[in-house]
Amino acid sequence: MRSFGSILFRFAFGVVLLAIRLAAQSDFDRGITAYSVGRFQESVGLFERALTNGRPSVGVLYNLGNARFRNGEVGKAIAAWRLAERAAPGRGEIQRNLELARRQVGSGSGPDWTQWARRLPPRRWAVPAAVAAWSWAILLLIGLGRDDRAGRFRKWMNRLGAVTILLFLGYSVSMAAVRSAPDSVVVGTGVAARFGPVDESPVAFPLPDGAEVRVDEVRGPWIRIVDSFGHVGWLSGGQVIQIPQ
């Protein structure tokens, strides 16, 4: 009897999951239809619901970015595209849309030398570098017990060492680039950075919707940001969307 109950429970759970997935898929398709006929606000809602009900995917995030951009929410569009870019760094359409939005915003996306790190983020380097590092270490360990100074084993060990060092350097530089690149997007119009983390503090400089900034410090509800021109100011945390690096 217990096993029957367990099977029933599992079946019901599976049905619920399938229903959620189908509902999410349905929202996704309806979002595309709404977007195609110019109902961008409705499209944003449907893509957001697809995101909430199902698991995030590159397609949903990318389409949500398009719908938000068409709906005039440039900052939120950039945030969605950046999330999609994070999962699929090489996708040309995401890059082109981001370039379009950044040109419109008129703010940079960080130093030039960090741009390539978007296409080759640290997670792309991490696994090959780890495999190479561990393999090299194992070979070195084996090599300790061998007197094979000029043999084939030593040659392969050296080659693997060179590859490991290159991968490690790539990982380190990519990590440094990501850490110095903007990690947040300003959302909303009329946002202005202040000199200090209090409401009474005077305005330091305005930030357009979609400006990409780097969060430097968090102090309660306030965050200290650095914009692409190096200006430092304080914003309320709700005025930016942070992109996981």
């Binding site: 999410a24 199902g54 397609g59 389409n63 398009n66």
Partner: peptide, 9 residues
């Protein structure tokens, strides 16, 4: 602006 993706992926 690039066109939408037809599949969620």
């Amino acid at each position: 602006l690039q066109p939408l993706m037809s599949s969620a992926g």
